[in-house]
């Protein structure tokens, strides 16, 4: 993903496509979308990934998290006339050096999350899938036990702290 972002590397993008496009299609079809429409969504999402690659920050997000959000936004756009309001973007200071240990640690946490997800009983996993596919209301989510997100949240918070000097003018 970083070669897509920094070098506009088409080969790297093609590999990203090969990994994510079929999973995206599977993900989108789980909520009842037809195969044809799912492929339209896949196309739009992957093009957005290419175009907005500059916004990707590996110290705060996994590629899958970032693509998940783009996909949900696209699906919402197709259902509603008003898109989802999004938070202000945090701009990274170009002077800031990538913190490799932060990126590795975040990757590890994301790995733990996937392991936890794969260990869930099928009915529990289905609840989580429904929640993240936007099929549960917030009231329904609050009565469910979620995934253990505490450690990845602290890790992301560290990634955000790097941007803190950018933020202090915000309030």
């Amino acid at each position: 993903m970083l070669s897509v972002r920094d070098d506009r590397d088409r080969e790297a993008f093609a590999r990203l496509f090969d990994f994510f496009a079929p999973r995206l299609k599977g993900f989108v079809m789980r909520s009842g979308t037809s195969s044809g429409q799912a492929e339209e969504i896949v196309q739009d999402v992957m093009l957005t990934v290419w175009r907005k690659a500059g916004q990707f920050d590996p110290a705060r997000a996994q590629v899958s998290a970032w693509i998940y959000q783009i996909a949900r936004n696209r699906q919402i756009d197709m259902i509603r006339k008003e898109g989802r309001p999004m938070p202000e973007e945090l701009q990274e200071d170009p002077e800031t050096e990538a913190d490799a240990s932060q990126i590795v640690a975040l990757e590890q946490e994301a790995g733990h999350l996937k392991t936890a997800l794969n260990k869930l009983a099928p009915d529990q996993r289905e609840v989580i899938e429904k929640a993240y596919m936007g099929e549960l209301t917030h009231q329904e989510i609050s009565s469910q036990t979620g995934l253990p997100l505490g450690t990845i949240k602290s890790r992301i918070r560290l990634g955000l702290e790097r941007l803190r000097h950018e933020l202090k003018d915000m309030r």
Binding site: R23, L24, A61, Q69, L113
Partner: peptide
């Protein structure tokens, strides 16, 4: 910043669901 981290943690969870979704040709 606290809730931004919480939001991004849920994005990570959504990403994990996406990554572990069945691939469809």
């Amino acid at each position: 910043l606290t809730c931004r981290a919480g939001f991004e943690a849920h994005q990570a969870a959504g990403g994990a669901v996406l990554e572990t979704s069945n691939a469809v040709a």
